[in-house]
Design a binder for these strands. Structure first.
Lengths: 252, 252
DNA sequence: CGCCGTATGTTGTCAGACAAATGCCCCGCG
DNA sequence: CGCGGGGCATTTGTCTGACAACATACGGCG
């Protein structure tokens, strides 16, 4: 069983509050019920409620001021957000389109210097790769290459062949029990070379957005390296940045 | 005095812990002292310490397992991260280069439909704009246009003229007491048209990364709209994404 | 009318306790 | 000797209650 199958009380509480806020139960700039009141009405202790509220505050859902209250923010929820939609599959779904896959193939390489550094394995280590053209409503939008160290796959080195249409993350979680907690993506503009252009059915030289992402497990060890070439107009890539406010200020 | 001048105990505690972790006091995969022990040694209650730890956990610094302990992750701190470096100024500094400004000019426009929607003002409202070419070690790297509703500037409509070399956020904070808590950036690839190319001293058609960002204050109201055209190779734009792990899973 | 102290409500922090989960040691058994 | 299971100590998760710090509204007073 995967590590985080059971939702903690705090997580469930957070989701419930998000749902009530998005349902419009409390309008922007409204003050939430006081912590003791709200905790009682939701059947949890004030300490647990405060945990959930703190999480909501860090994500910008609410704004808490001592002595006054907890207020709902005006910012509305971003749909196609790199933060809430992790993989390409979810990104396509969040746009209301049907995700699909074509021209799938797997292969095996030895780690280059860069790959070795990013994945924290020795240079020359065997890597398994899965290349796919992702489609939205049948139209090619992304060419993705997922790279995973063979040692991670343990006794199932051919696991990537089983991914098919779905998400790599689902397969990793179900088959290996690996939970991806976070990924670090590097973003660059690019032009389509002839190979890319042919696969994505666009003219050579077309504008692309290139995302190189490394995903980490709960312990912070690299799990997966992925290269994604997005068509320029396929999605609106959105990123939420936490500002220089009093919440989290850090030197250097 | 700005709203968040005094650090809360929790914030200070978080910073202290981050510092100790980054200083290598605890190595990756090390277990931190137990919560009661650590709380006592830092002179705070366990509840407050738990708040700080939770914050660290959500940012991927530590990994907590019930019954076992709190462990330091392997992920190293990302420097040029859109999350920790908010403005172009900080982005340049984080690369170890000297930020500068050239070809500065301010002007006034009336809000288009898009601008009105993003800034939550009526169409046609007066907007103040500041256009700058940002340089790193003297070399042009970004063309930025900052747009702010005139009403936000109150009795100091010419405030943008005072920004000069520095950060718009600093001026907003000092002069208006406006704290920016978060921003939402939309990222697209682009090609330099002739105007852009001339300003940035690159050939027309050069690869650019276009960032359109809306910044929000503590209450979640839009404050500032900025357009940034980055040279493709100027920075490595990095984004930390929170994965589909057990921490924050949300439907729809 | 304007100023200021107080009363009240809210969030921030603290203290202590128990529940749930994990890991370890030790013992018994094959 | 190897190994499997039960008990025990440790650690995080949650609950309860209390007080401090702060903000706001109200009413008295000059």
């Amino acid at each position: 069983m995967p590590r985080g199958a059971t939702k903690s009380v705090r997580t469930a509480l957070r989701e419930a509050l998000v749902q009530r806020i998005e349902a419009g139960e409390w309008r922007p700039s409204d003050r939430l019920p006081s912590e003791p009141t709200l905790a009682a009405s939701m059947g949890v202790s004030r300490a647990t409620l405060r945990d959930a509220l703190r999480s909501l505050e860090e994500d910008g859902f609410v704004n808490r001021v001592q002595g006054s209250g907890t207020f709902v923010t005006h910012r509305l929820r971003m749909k196609n957000n790199l933060d809430v939609n992790f993989g390409v599959t979810e990104l396509i779904r969040s746009m209301g389109m049907r995700p699909g896959t074509g021209q799938s193939r797997t292969f095996r390489v030895e780690a280059t210097t860069d790959e070795a550094r990013l994945l924290a394995v020795p240079v020359g280590s065997p890597l398994r790769c899965l290349e796919r053209v992702r489609t939205a409503d049948g139209q090619p939008v992304v060419l993705s290459v997922d790279v995973i160290p063979e040692e991670r796959l343990g006794d199932r080195p051919e696991l990537l062949n089983e991914v098919g249409e779905g998400s790599v993350y689902d397969v990793l979680g179900r088959a290996l029990g690996v939970v991806v907690r976070q990924g670090v993506a590097s973003i660059r503009p690019a032009n389509a070379d002839e190979k890319l252009a042919a696969r994505l059915r666009v003219p050579a030289g077309a504008l692309l957005l290139y995302l190189r992402q490394v995903d980490f497990d709960l312990e912070g060890r690299p799990v997966l390296l992925s290269h994604e070439h997005h068509l320029a107009d396929a999605f609106e890539i959105v990123v939420v940045r936490r500002g220089p406010g009093p919440s989290t200020k850090e030197p250097t």
